[in-house]
Design a protein around this nucleic acid. Structure first.
Lengths: 189, 189, 189, 189
DNA sequence: TATGAATGAGGCTTCATTCAT
DNA sequence: AATGAATGAAGCCTCATTCAT
């Protein structure tokens, strides 16, 4: 792994574990087993590291979105598949997501990044709803706000999973909750 | 206003605006127009200020919960009323809520406080659902996770309202979304 | 007890227990159950309190010296009596002495006070030695330095008693040590 | 000189001159012509500096003790030599000793360090007395308390030399005082 | 006399960043 | 590229002292 990637991955672990403020350049260097000066050879500032992490995360989510869209266009993506992909993404990128959720209130960089994240998820869910409506399996609900509602639900589940793991997982019931609200009476489960 | 309250209210504004870390004792003193030393006549530490804010917030929310419970017992609290009370509470306590949402990931004090907050809201929603089921207006959904789902939905709405005010308000649609999922087919709207 | 005396005696206890720096005006006021402002009604400064304590101590020691001198002039004061009076003084004024021993290196006031203390003790011991020589019970030793040696010995014993109480008391042996060095071979014990 | 040693030696001078409390990190940095932050690259805290000084001093005194013991075993160490070595040590390490004598009452670290110092000196003097007794040149005095008496005498002399240099040196007479108390009548001077 | 809130200088410590090697 | 010592601004907190009541 290149030094730059080493710094990035170490920083990602540390920020998600202790928060952005409590990761100092000193303990980052120590944990990555490099010198403090080296950090500044690869990044302009401490915040720049966060920026890179967020950018990479953004790309990873975009890739997921594109993948979902492709499958959606082929008509092979059920709601279960869509949510399943997202839960898998959550598990695979827990550190990034903790960083996003833990710093958006204190770093403008992250607030913008999270706004993009929400917006992408909303648009994806919205498109999925539209497909469903065209196929008659979904009720005629207003698309944009409903997409946002689903994204919002998903964010909440992530947050609770990550920060209060002691709370029983309720994602299955959440999916059921949404299905009841969205499915046409006639549509089989 | 007493000096203690002045500090508390100034700190509340500042923390909700710039975050706990970026509110320093120096700029807090400056904005409250007192000396730094004065802060420490009234609070043991900077974190103690946060603690007081959270405690006060906790009491305010408890009061709301009790009020809702009283009306629920009288049978005069519809789901709309319940959610309406919460939205009003959100508007009246925006700063406190921003503090809770913005510091739980970095301050243990707040993580505990937020856990209590979630738990109280979940329990209240759950009780409301139970009432509805007994009256036959609500479907037979699993109470505990559904209470959590509603609380979670509500938290998400708060967060978006507070941090991304540029996003269109979707709370009305969210209420509708929940109604569709929960109301018995027979129950009139 | 007057407020002034209350402050003085509380301060004496505290300084001897925790040291001059760690006694703050705040905790002094608290322990004496008065307000901080009241201290400044009776004393010009924190150091002024120390000054008063030292002055009082100085007077108490002068009284002891005068008492010893009176008995010496009557010829009724043996070396045992002299040292016994001093050990009794040490026990009765442990707090004052701890203050003197604990602050002379950091407070000029005390260094001067302790210089007087040493000088008075030296002069008294010297006079006692002179009496003994005139009576032929003591060897012809140089008076001034020997007085200082005895005073020095005494201070050391005080210090160890006060700060390292776990060390076995060796004052009896110290007296014996001095007797062997000072008594004429002919003089009975 | 390394920066660490520069800090150490500057701190040693300052503490011995003005005391531990009055040496602040700010004036230490200024006098050593470094920045305050630099202090903390080399020491964990202000007290850690004191700790290092005391440890180094402890080692130096241990070296002296070992040297004395070696000569004692060869039978070439008279009481004069022993005391002479100590007076030389005192002159060479005046600053360290002032620090020990000036902070034991306020810093636990130093009280322990001084306890070790006393104990080592006592043990050394005791061994010397035992040698003398075996050779018949010293009286049969109780070893342990007498060792303590000699150590105590020596500490007092150090203290007076260091803090009240205006008082005439009485170390020669002190040695004489001890000889009279300890030498067998038959032993030549 | 007494109070106790307020002050503000100054203490110790941290940390992102720089720079000579 | 990498190092790591050095920086200095800034953070939190303490405390002797003052002053309006």
């Amino acid at each position: 792994m290149s030094t730059k990637d080493l710094i990035l991955s170490t920083a990602k672990d540390m920020i998600s574990e202790v928060g952005f403020h409590k990761m100092t350049t000193a303990n980052l260097a120590k944990r990555a087993d490099i010198s403090e000066g080296t950090i500044y050879r690869h990044f302009e500032s401490k915040e720049d590291i966060l920026q890179h992490i967020l950018d990479t995360f953004d790309e990873k989510y975009q890739a997921l979105v594109e993948n979902c869209r492709t499958r959606m266009d082929k008509g092979t993506l059920s709601l279960e598949d869509l949510l399943g992909s997202h839960f898998a993404f959550l598990d695979a990128n827990a550190a990034d997501i903790k960083i996003v959720l833990g710093t958006y209130s204190i770093q403008d960089v992250t607030r913008r990044s999270m706004a993009r994240f929400i917006e992408r998820m909303r648009a994806l869910f919205e498109d999925h709803l539209e497909h469903g409506q065209q196929q008659g399996t979904l009720l005629e609900v207003p698309l944009r706000p409903t997409g946002l509602i689903l994204a919002n639900m998903f964010f909440g589940i992530m947050r609770i999973k990550l920060y209060w793991p002691e709370i029983d997982d309720f994602s299955t019931e959440a999916v059921e909750f949404c299905r009841r609200s969205l499915m046409s009476p006639g549509a089989g489960k």
